[in-house]
Amino acid sequence: MESSKITKACIVLLCLVQSLFFSTAALATLINNGDFSSGLNDWSDASFTGSVTENDGQAILSSGDNTDPFAAVLIQGDDGSFLFDSPIMVDPNVSMLSVDAALLSMLFDPTEQGGSAFSDTLFLAIYDAVDYTFDAVFEIPALGNVAETFLFDMSDWLGRGIAISFELADEDDGFNLSYSVDNVLFTYNNTPVPVPEPESFIMLLVGLTLLARCRKSA
């Protein structure tokens, strides 16, 4: 009977240990307010004809009247002047830049002729603080109103200072588009490091206590 209790306690303890080491991973970040929980703090709005707003913990980039390749611009690491007074330093262990984005709306724009074969497009631009030859621009092909996660390889900027810029290009397609951007962060070595949650530690302690009592009673 007592042996059965000890066996059960060991099984429970093993499950708790597995839960401890395979709990939800936490992604480290060197980007300030990447989840926009503090509104647009730490970000600069360098928009022209469009706009950048915050809604429900997301940054919303919207195109405006007429056309402009930089209709809505949201940037961190620079204020749009390219002076790079406070660049983001990319840790050498960074692997990817992760971004959640979604297409929220498409509204008719009477100020456009609708002659372009291209629609308004959201881009991610990475600007190097020292050498512009490292600059790169990536399209974020968010097509649905449910956020998708997009990953961008950061191997070219390890140990360098950069600015991260989200840029909505307004094309002459006859429409204005709005995109959401959220959870902007760096991942390390492309493998999230498991970080046990406080509840996991508590459960482990309970399991150890249970095992000790079973052994004592045996």
Rank of each mutant, 00 (worst) to 15 (best):
M1A: 13
T7S: 15
I11C: 09
L14K: 14
C15S: 12
T24I: 10
L27E: 15
L27R: 15
T29N: 12
L30V: 13
N32C: 11
N33F: 12
G34W: 06
D35M: 06
S37A: 15
S38C: 11
D42F: 15
W43G: 09
W43Y: 10
D45W: 08
S47P: 09
S47L: 05
F48P: 00
S51N: 12
V52H: 02
V52W: 03
T53H: 02
E54T: 11
N55W: 07
N55F: 08
G57Y: 02
N66I: 02
N66Q: 10
N66F: 11
P69D: 12
F70H: 11
F70S: 13
A72R: 03
L74I: 05
I75W: 04
D78I: 06
D78L: 04
D85S: 13
S86P: 00
D91T: 06
P92A: 02
N93Y: 09
N93M: 08
V94E: 07
M96N: 14
V99L: 13
V99H: 00
L104W: 06
S105E: 12
S105R: 10
P110E: 06
P110G: 03
E112V: 01
G114M: 05
G114N: 03
G115R: 04
S116H: 03
S116L: 05
F118H: 09
F118G: 00
F123W: 11
L124N: 01
L124S: 03
A125T: 11
A125Y: 09
I126R: 03
V130F: 10
F138M: 01
F138R: 01
P141V: 02
L143C: 04
G144V: 13
F152N: 01
S155G: 00
W157F: 15
W157N: 08
G159C: 05
G161E: 04
A163W: 09
I164C: 07
S165L: 05
S165M: 10
F166T: 05
E167R: 15
D170S: 15
E171L: 07
G174I: 10
F175T: 15
F175A: 10
F175Y: 15
N176Y: 00
N176T: 14
Y179P: 02
D182C: 03
D182F: 02
F186I: 07
T187R: 11
Y188E: 14
N190C: 07
T191D: 13
T191N: 14
P192Q: 10
V193F: 12
V195F: 12
E197C: 00
E199G: 06
F201T: 00
M203Q: 12
L205C: 08
V206N: 09
G207T: 03
T209M: 13
L211I: 04
C214F: 01
K216E: 12
K216H: 14
A218N: 08
